[in-house]
Design a protein around this nucleic acid. Structure first.
Length: 136
DNA sequence: GCCAACGTTGGC
DNA sequence: GCCAACGTTGGC
């Protein structure tokens, strides 16, 4: 499988983009949903991941990169971790409202299954969100 | 193994 | 704060 794209959600009140930047690299823990865990297991080092603010903001705010592939969580056998590192902030945040009204993005998992906390993103969707976000 | 009840998430 | 959608749990 070649490089893939993903999207992870975080509530900014708990762990915001600013926290991500400050941390530079962080372990993405606490995921219990089986579907989300499968997606995490499929992540490969170097894959790009959108960082999405749920609840407050409801927008894609930045891009992170997989720094370490899936490994078991020593504290929680039902869960696991990947490490991600901050790459860049989007010049323009791309809001959920924008995504919902964009014909190219209306099939995103974010729209169709908003509760899934780790989602796959297609190459076409990735390119479109980057364009809307002002990423070169 | 099915399904109803319950809990949680997240958009509004 | 409310409610809809989804996941999980537990009784059968």
């Amino acid at each position: 499988m070649s490089a893939a794209y993903w999207l992870v959600k975080s509530e900014p009140a708990v762990f915001s983009w600013d926290d991500m930047v400050k941390a530079k690299t962080t372990d993405w823990s606490g995921v219990r949903n089986p579907g989300a865990l499968i997606n995490m297991k499929n992540m490969k080092k170097g894959d790009r991941v959108f960082f999405y603010h749920s609840n407050e903001g409801k927008c894609v705010v930045g891009i992170v990169e997989v720094a370490k592939t899936f490994y078991a969580d020593p504290k929680d056998e039902k869960s696991g971790l990947v490490d991600v590192k901050a790459v860049e902030k989007l010049p323009n945040e791309v809001t959920l409202a924008t995504i919902k009204t964009d014909p190219a993005l209306k099939d995103m998992v974010l729209v169709k299954n908003s509760r899934l906390s780790v989602q796959p993103v297609t190459a076409a969707e990735w390119a479109r969100v980057c364009k809307l976000g002002g990423v070169k």
